[in-house]
Amino acid sequence: MNAPSPGFTLGPNSYGKSGVRLVRVDRDTPRHAIRDLTVHTALSGDLDATHYSGDNTGVLPTDTQKNTVYALARDGVGAVEAFAERLARHFVDTTPSITHARVRIEEHPWTRVGDHSFTRGEGGERRTAEAAYGGAGAAVTAGIRDLLLLNTTDSEFTGFLVNEFTTLPETDDRILATAVAADWDYTTAPADYDQAFQSARAALLEAFADTYSLSLQQTLYAVGERILKTVPEAGEVRLSLPNRHHYLLDLGRFGLDNPGVVFQAGDLPYGLIEGAVRREAP
Rank of each mutant, 00 (worst) to 15 (best):
T141M: 12
T141V: 15
A142K: 03
G143W: 06
G143K: 01
R145L: 10
R145C: 01
L148G: 08
N151D: 10
N151V: 10
N151P: 00
T152H: 07
T153P: 00
T153E: 06
S155N: 12
E156D: 10
T158A: 12
T158G: 02
L161E: 09
V162Q: 11
V162K: 14
N163R: 04
N163I: 09
F165Q: 03
F165E: 10
T167F: 09
L168I: 07
P169M: 13
P169L: 13
E170S: 14
T171K: 00
T171Q: 07
I175E: 08
I175K: 06
T178G: 10
A181S: 10
A182V: 04
D183I: 03
W184E: 00
T188H: 04
A189T: 10
P190Y: 10
A191S: 15
D194C: 08
D194A: 15
Q195A: 15
Q195D: 13
F197N: 02
F197Q: 06
S199E: 13
R201W: 01
F208P: 05
D210R: 14
D210W: 05
T211K: 08
S213Y: 07
S215W: 08
L216N: 07
Q217G: 07
E225A: 15
I227S: 07
L228Q: 05
L228N: 06
K229L: 11
K229N: 14
A234K: 03
E236S: 12
V237W: 02
R238I: 12
R238G: 14
L239M: 02
S240R: 08
N243H: 15
R244G: 11
H246S: 15
Y247N: 06
Y247I: 11
Y247R: 13
L249E: 10
D250T: 09
G252M: 04
G255L: 02
L256G: 06
N258D: 10
G260N: 12
G260A: 13
G260K: 08
V261N: 02
F263A: 07
Q264N: 07
